[in-house]
Design a protein around this nucleic acid. Structure first.
Length: 111
DNA sequence: ACCATGACGTTTC
DNA sequence: CGAAACGCCATGG
C-alpha cells in the first residue's frame, strides 16, 4: 500500500494494545495519533481492518458515548456485544455500561 | 474535478 | 439539559 498505511497500522496497533476487559474511543485513538480531527478516519481504518492480516479487536473500540456503533460491521449480529460481555464489560442496548471504568485511553495510559 | 457518504466529535441553538 | 448542525479527513462514484 502506501506510507499512509502507517496511520491505519497505528490504529490497529493501538487497538491490539487495548487490555482485556477495556475499551477505547475513536477520538482517543485519533488524538493519540495526532489526528484528533480525524476521528472518522479511525473508524474508516477499522472498516479496512478486515483487510488486515492481523486480527483487530475493533469490538473494543467504540465511540465517545460508548455506543457500539460499529457492531453492525461485525456481522450484523450481537457478536460485538457478546465479545465485550465476554470480557466482563456490561453492554445494554449496544451501549457500554460503566464506560468510565472500562475506558482505556492510550494518550492517558501511554502518555 | 466535484459531490456524496461515513465504525466521530465538538460546538451552538 | 436536549437536540441539531457543522466541521474534519479520506475514500468512492
Amino acid at each position: 500500500m502506501k506510507e499512509s498505511d502507517n496511520f491505519f497500522e497505528k490504529v490497529y496497533q493501538v487497538a491490539r494494545l487495548i487490555p482485556y476487559g477495556k475499551v477505547t474511543t475513536y477520538g482517543s485513538i485519533a488524538n493519540y495519533l495526532g489526528a484528533a480531527r480525524s476521528a472518522r478516519m479511525v473508524g474508516w481504518a477499522m472498516n479496512n481492518s478486515h483487510n488486515q492480516t492481523k486480527e483487530v479487536p475493533a469490538h473494543r473500540v467504540v465511540n465517545r458515548k460508548g455506543l457500539l456503533t460499529g457492531k453492525h460491521h461485525f456481522g450484523g449480529t450481537n457478536l460485538m456485544q457478546q465479545l465485550l460481555e465476554n470480557e466482563g464489560i456490561s453492554v445494554v442496548e449496544n451501549q457500554i455500561q460503566e464506560l468510565e471504568k472500562v475506558l482505556w485511553d492510550p494518550v492517558k495510559e501511554l502518555s
